[in-house]
Each structure stands twice: as structure tokens, then as C-alpha cells.
Design a binder for these strands. Structure first.
Lengths: 246, 246
DNA sequence: CCTCCTCTGGGTACATCGTACGCAGAGAGG
DNA sequence: CCTCTCTGCGTACGATGTACCCAGAGGAGG
């Protein structure tokens, strides 16, 4: 109501008075449906209410603000794909899977990748995923801060990657121009840059665009490997440090 | 005008008629000033125009849309810090410097980190930085795609890191609640989670929050090291592959 | 059953946004 | 000097989130 994020503390609805017609779950689902079909920009309180067959202001009986609704949406999709109760494989395999799971969810709900959340989401599903990720890295000799930092880097990488992966489609919807159409509008300018000769490597990027570049899956996996290699290196560094000190 | 991003192709102003009172540079500077002082949300065409002492619609004689203005703003701050003409040190040192430069710029202009740009910005300053980054990785045995991917990961990491670094301040301004005040509103809920015992690692994150965590500079450097270690590993892999094949 | 009092759904209103459109007038090219 | 382009800018439209208000429904206590 008053404080953003307090959505998780507020009970769905106390007992007195007439029973509510709708539910948070129902409203969240309606909002997600709209976001999936028409983009996050189409999710307005009026639109969500309209799809539910009610008035905009009625929604405020269930959620404190639009931000709260979005927090509900994010936590809901985070819980879509099940997670093992406890990590079974080695940490690298588990984290890779977790990253791919995150990417899959975001690709399924592109809007979820495009939102920048200021403060951590303490929804139950988000909490569970976070705990799972930390569990994967537990017992490898990293401090809790280092573990958190590693998870943070990983989640950040996935989010950033999918963001750019998805930005194209969002831009197409927003401007009504497909990437190809847009490229045509830029062609003369880009050509001038390439032929100017001052940016030889940029020119190579453009020139070799005719032959197929690395596909998105490959690029995602490569970036992930970079990060995981880095974490491995950190673990090994701390390990040998421990061995030389003890 | 019609096409977003075409801002870089359009000449500042052709010759006929009366000479313009303002300039793109002037408008961009005014917009950046507002964004720095009051957040990106405060940058409205009306507000920018007001600060310049003119009407909102006058700005559209200089920029095609608000998106174009934002593209100008982003490219402008990208050019704030000078870049060497050509990389002088080893690639790792250079890329570290480049990352820190990027972080510094974004911290100086927090709004620039919070924007998600759908399609690449072809402004002169952005172009130059991109070329510079690619140059650092040239000649190490990576393909142009791999180089681009590495730069992409790096830029993404910096952006993602600063995003979360900056989100807090933005959230404080937006909601009027400092992080401490917000934490108080969440305290009962978080306490319940911690004491529930189902999230022992999350509990450790919270519990050990009294002792100082890693500071932001350290966390940034750690994440960067992860990525650079990963790129190093990729370079070595390709190198030994070449040696065994030739 | 009656009464009360909370909680319901939802209408109206307000400030703010980007920008389409049109117009009076200024000023440079012929 | 005439003409025609380009100027700054006022008005207007359709959005947005949400504060505020009100009539009435219906569970709780007598």
C-alpha cells in the first residue's frame, strides 16, 4: 500500500466484509498474459482491469501499486520452472543449468528481462532460487560474500545477455520497424563509416555479417564459460592459498 | 524525425530560412544536466525546453524524438573521458582500464546505466570506444565474432554492475525511502525468513550483514577478474589448439 | 433476525507524459 | 523586393498512475 515491496508481508485479505471477487494470483496471471502478448508497456492498470472485466481502481484492493504488481509478476515467472530440492551434480553443471533455466524463463517472458528492479525481490520463488544458487557454491572455500558475488555476476550476465537478445523484438514492436528495415535506414551511414577506414575492426564486424555469426546459444554458452572459468580460477587460488598456509 | 536512430545521419540544420536559436549540443547538455540532478524520469521534453527558456515543441526542430535525444545524451557522456589513440599496454590492463572508465562514466551519470537501448548506438563516441575495445583484443587469435562477444560480455558486466549499484539511489529518489528506512519496513518479514531455517545461506547473507561486506570497488574488480580469467582461458585454449594442429 | 461497521467494486478527477498539427512571422536566395 | 523555407511555439489528444470518494454488500455480535 504505502511502502513498495511490502507486498510480501501483506496478507491476501483479512476476514471481515464481503469476500473479494478476484485474487492476487488472478490479477498477476492477467498481467503476465498481457505482458507476454503485447509487451510490458501494454501492462497498465486500466488494461489489466479491463481484461478482468473490472475497473482500474479495483485492482488497488489487491496490490498496493503497479510496482507491487510487477514484483508479483516477476516472482511468479521465477517459479514457473521447477528446481531440484537440493543440488545433485557438481557446482559447474548446476550453475550452468540454473543459468539456462533463467534464460529460458526470460525468453518465454521477454518483459521480465527488460525490467530493472531497484531493490531485491523477496518473493518466495526468487528467494528459493537464490538459496539454491548459493547452495551450489557452498563448501568450495569461498566466503559468503564471494559466493553472493559470484551468483550476482552469473545472474547479471544471464539477464544482460537476454536483455540484448530481447531488446530487438521489443524495439520492433515499439517502432514498428523490423531489424532489417531499420538496417536499411542506417545503411548509408554505416557504409560511410566502413568505407571511411578509421574503424577497421568495426568494418570487419559489418563486412563479415554476410557469413553467419556465432548463434545466440553459442554466444550465451561462451559468455557463461568465461564467468565459470573465472570462478574456478578464484576457487583454485583460494585453495592453494589455504594449502600453503596450513 | 521518422526513424529512430537516424539522428546520426541528419545534418544539424540546412541553410535556408532563419538561423536556429539553439543547437543539438545545447539541448543535449541541458537534458544531461537535468538527468544528473533529478534523474532520467525528470527529463521530459517540457522540462528540457523550460530550462532552455523555450517551448516543448521547439525541440522537435532539432531532434526527431525523445529517443533521439537520449541517443545524443548517451553518446555525449561516452565521449566525456578521453581515450588513448591506440592501446599501449597489454590487453588485460587496457580492458580493465576501459571497464573502470565505463563504470566511472556511469557513476557520474547514473541514468546512463539504467537505460536499455534496443539497437546499437552508432554515435561517434560510442563507435570510437567500441573500435578501441576491439583493437585491444586484436591479434590474440580470436575470431572477430569471439572478440565482439568478449567485448560484449565485458560491457554488459560493467553495465549490469553499475545498474544495481545505482538502482538503490534511483529507488530512494523515486520512493522517498532510503535503503535503511526500506530495510526497516522489510525487517519483520526478513526476520521471519531467517528464523524459519529453510534458507540457511540467505540467513548467513543477512546475519553477516553487520560485519562489513566486500565494498563495491572490490566486488567490481572481482567480477571483472572472473570475466578476464575466462577470456584468458579461451585465448589459451585456442592457442594450444593451433599448436597441436600446426 | 437485526444492526453495525468494515470492506467491496468502481467512478471521477488530476497531474504529467510524448508528440501531431497548424500557424504567424522571420530571414535568406533569386 | 519577392518568394518560399524554416523558425519558434500554442493548442490539443490520448495515454499514464493513482488519490479520493461513495453507495452498497455482507459477515460479526447482539
Amino acid at each position: 500500500m504505502d511502502v513498495p515491496g511490502s507486498i510480501w508481508m501483506r496478507p491476501e485479505r483479512p476476514g471481515r466484509g464481503p469476500s473479494p471477487t478476484y485474487s492476487r494470483e488472478q490479477i498477476t496471471a492477467a498481467a503476465i498474459k498481457i505482458a507476454d502478448e503485447a509487451g510490458i508497456a501494454a501492462v497498465s492498470m486500466r488494461r489489466v482491469a479491463q481484461d478482468l472485466g473490472t475497473g482500474a481502481m479495483s485492482l488497488y484492493r489487491y496490490v498496493g501499486s503497479k510496482d507491487d504488481l510487477i514484483a508479483l509478476m516477476l516472482d511468479h515467472v521465477e517459479g514457473e520452472d521447477p528446481l531440484p530440492e537440493v543440488p545433485a551434480e557438481d557446482w559447474r553443471t548446476e550453475l550452468t543449468r540454473l543459468a539456462e533455466r533463467g534464460r529460458a524463463i526470460m525468453l518465454r517472458h521477454p518483459w521480465s528481462a527488460m525490467l530493472i528492479i531497484g531493490r531485491p525481490n523477496f518473493g518466495p520463488n526468487t528467494l528459493h532460487t537464490m538459496e539454491y544458487a548459493l547452495t551450489c557454491l557452498d563448501g568450495l572455500g569461498l566466503s559468503i560474500d564471494e559466493m553472493l558475488n559470484a551468483v550476482f555476476s552469473l545472474v547479471g550476465h544471464v539477464r544482460m545477455f537476454v536483455q540484448s537478445e530481447v531488446a530487438e523484438a521489443e524495439e520492433t514492436r515499439r517502432t514498428g520497424l523490423t531489424e532489417d528495415q531499420w538496417r536499411i535506414t542506417q545503411h548509408a551511414y554505416v557504409k560511410q563509416i566502413v568505407e571511411g577506414g578509421r574503424y577497421p575492426l568495426f568494418a570487419r564486424v559489418i563486412t563479415e555479417a554476410t557469413t553467419p555469426h556465432l548463434d545466440m546459444d553459442q554466444r550465451f554458452r561462451d559468455g557463461l564459460e568465461h564467468l565459470l572459468d573465472g570462478i574456478t580460477a578464484q576457487i583454485h587460488r583460494k585453495e592453494s592459498l589455504r594449502n600453503s598456509n596450513g
